[in-house]
């Protein structure tokens, strides 16, 4: 469509022009409307947020809360220990994410397969997803963290870090499997029909046609799950893993000052907020791309 001479269109009309008087007026009036809106947004924000802050600061217990939760010099003191704990959370997240990806993919493929031979595995996968989606993660962590060592099976690990990670992987795989499955189901049947009519077998159709499109579609929700996963790794602290939450707990129980918790929260936010922003961007991009495809 692009013409070599950019200033003219196909019929030779010039593409650049001087805006008319009316257009200039319109631009000016759009600017005025924009300024007015900005003013209203600022005023309303100042009033709402200002009164919230005022409510907190003037509350009777504020002074003691400020001393126990926002003692910045103590916060700085424990920063190193909490940050070291956070490294555990990050490591755990990375390892768990990889394992979840593999396990969830297998579950999703089993649940969407129609092969007769795989029927028992399909039933097992369905039962698995039902169970692990329905039990709170904290309970799974407790059951595995305390239950598995109690079995005293030789050679089985007693490391709370590994057991905690296992619990997280088991639960999240169920969630992620459902996300992937919904992606697979979202691919229009006509794509499958086209692939099958070309002679591709059902597994070839899945691998070359359905899955690549499905995975592209579920990247944004999976990034959301990644953020949730990072936060939820904090739950393994209940088993005694020295992660950021546990480090903060140790520090605060020493002095009865809760600032380490706030420190840990801020450190988590430093990672999750950029990750969430990035997720939103990916999501916005994919919506745009899909709309463009729909229009074509």
């Amino acid at each position: 469509m692009n013409n070599d001479s950019p200033a003219r269109d196909d019929s030779g009309r010039a593409l650049s022009w001087t805006p008319s008087q009316r257009e200039l007026e319109r631009q000016a009036s759009r600017k005025a409307i924009g300024r007015k809106k900005a003013l209203i947004a600022t005023l309303s924000s100042v009033i709402v947020i200002g009164s919230l802050i005022r409510l907190i600061i003037t509350s009777p217990g504020w002074q003691s809360v400020k001393d126990t939760f926002f003692d910045w010099s103590y916060g700085g003191e424990v920063l190193g220990a909490v940050a070291k704990g956070l490294v555990v959370n990050i490591r755990l997240t990375i390892i768990a994410a990889i394992l979840i990806g593999i396990f969830a993919m297998i579950l999703a493929l089993l649940r969407t397969s129609r092969s007769a031979a795989l029927t028992p595995f399909r039933l097992m996968a369905t039962a698995y997803v039902d169970i692990f989606r329905g039990v709170p993660l904290l309970l799974v962590i407790l059951l595995i963290g305390f239950g598995v060592p109690a079995l005293r099976i030789e050679g089985l690990t007693n490391s709370v870090l590994i057991l905690g990670t296992t619990a997280v992987v088991l639960t999240y795989s169920a969630y992620v499997a459902e996300v992937i499955r919904s992606g697979i189901l979202s691919i229009h049947p006509s794509q499958r029909a086209a692939a099958r009519s070309l002679g591709l077998s059902s597994s070839q159709t899945m691998r070359h046609v359905v899955l690549p499109q499905a995975l592209k579609r579920v990247v944004p929700p999976l990034l959301n799950d990644l953020v949730a996963l990072l936060k939820d790794t904090g739950l393994v602290s209940i088993l005694g893993v020295t992660d950021a939450v546990r480090a903060a707990q140790i520090a605060s129980s020493r002095t009865f000052n809760y600032t380490p918790y706030v420190t840990a929260a801020i450190l988590f936010l430093l990672i999750t907020i950029p990750l969430t922003r990035y997720t939103d961007r990916v999501l916005a991009k994919s919506i745009k791309r899909q709309n463009a495809q729909g229009a074509a």
Partner: peptide
């Protein structure tokens, strides 16, 4: 069926090209 379809070509109203 995969063998049969090797000998058949089908073109659809809605093209159904693979977008990826």
């Amino acid at each position: 069926v995969d063998e049969v379809r090797k000998g058949l070509g089908m073109v659809f109203q809605s093209f159904n090209l693979f977008p990826h």
